[in-house]
Amino acid sequence: MTAIPPLLPRHTPPDAAAKDFRGNKLFRHMTSNEIEALSPSVEMLRYGKGEMIVQRHDQDGGIYLLLDGALLANQYAKSGREVGYRRIAPGGYFGEIAAIDGQPRSANIVAIEDVRIARVPQTLARRLFETSPNFMRALLEDMAGLTRSLTDRLFELTAVSVACRVDIELLRMATAAGGDGVTAVINPCPTHAELAALLGSQREPVTRELNRLAGLNIVRQTGRTLQVLDVPALTAEIERIGGEV
């Protein structure tokens, strides 16, 4: 993915997505009245695939809630190599770190599909920090979860093979997609290049491992849909090649 300069966001009509932000997990411990009181201050935005929502070093301190689509948090080395930190799915959010410490953004956030976003301005976020224990409870829980996730990814990057990292990431996505515990459908599945950026690898080893799993009848990919045909077999394969589940 090539770095793209930030573009002006397209605002949705005031009532087009007015209720969607209320279901974001950031508000899960707040009462309906508390959430409703936020409505006049929350800004609704749209971005197209490939647009950059925020750029590393930006000073904006708002918190962004993803309503539809998918986002990638990434950074580019001077060589042009892309490093992906995490994908953000609907119901997720970003920007809380800059809202807390007032420092510039630490990563780019790029739309990898068309997206709708609700923006909580920095002034509102800081007021919630000071006045809403329920808001802060959710935020602290999520930051603890993110820290654990990034710790796991750092370990995987340094201790297991690319093939194993691909398998672990597929299992994460299959678990997030739900299902019956035996099969799962990941749609849309990240491209091989996007997976490589997330896993600290190149596209070719990712493609080789996906082809190997397909040959074992563990996965099947059709376009942007990836079916995990045998979740227990994928789990066993991770353990066989040196990973932990």
Rank of each mutant, 00 (worst) to 15 (best):
G48H: 14
D230G: 08
T235P: 02
A159H: 15
G200P: 02
R126Q: 14
A233Y: 04
E204I: 12
T235S: 15
G23P: 06
G145A: 14
R28I: 12
R22Y: 00
G200A: 06
A163W: 09
S201C: 04
G178T: 09
L128Q: 02
R56H: 14
P14Q: 11
G84W: 02
V110C: 05
G145K: 14
Y76V: 08
G62A: 10
N108S: 13
I238D: 10
A70M: 15
A177H: 11
N24P: 01
A138P: 05
E113W: 04
G62Q: 05
P232Y: 04
R119E: 02
A107K: 12
L128H: 00
G84D: 03
L66R: 06
A77N: 07
Y47D: 04
K49E: 11
M44G: 08
N134I: 00
L229C: 07
M136A: 05
Y93E: 00
T175W: 11
E82I: 07
L150M: 14
P205K: 04
L195T: 10
S39C: 01
D58S: 12
A184G: 06
G145Q: 15
R127V: 04
P205H: 09
M143Y: 06
L65T: 00
D60Y: 02
G102K: 10
P188E: 12
A125P: 05
L71C: 11
K49H: 11
D58N: 12
L226D: 08
F94M: 01
M44R: 07
I218W: 03
L128A: 06
E239F: 06
S149P: 01
V245L: 15
E51Q: 12
P232S: 08
L157S: 14
D58I: 02
L199M: 04
L128F: 00
N74C: 14
E237W: 06
L170N: 07
D180V: 00
G62I: 05
S132C: 03
A70C: 14
V160I: 15
A196W: 02
I109D: 00
K25S: 15
A174M: 02
N134A: 10
L157N: 14
T123H: 12
G181K: 05
A99K: 04
C189R: 07
T131L: 04
H11T: 05
I241C: 13
A107V: 12
M136T: 07
D15Y: 12
M44L: 14
E194Y: 03
E43W: 05
L8R: 11
P14H: 13
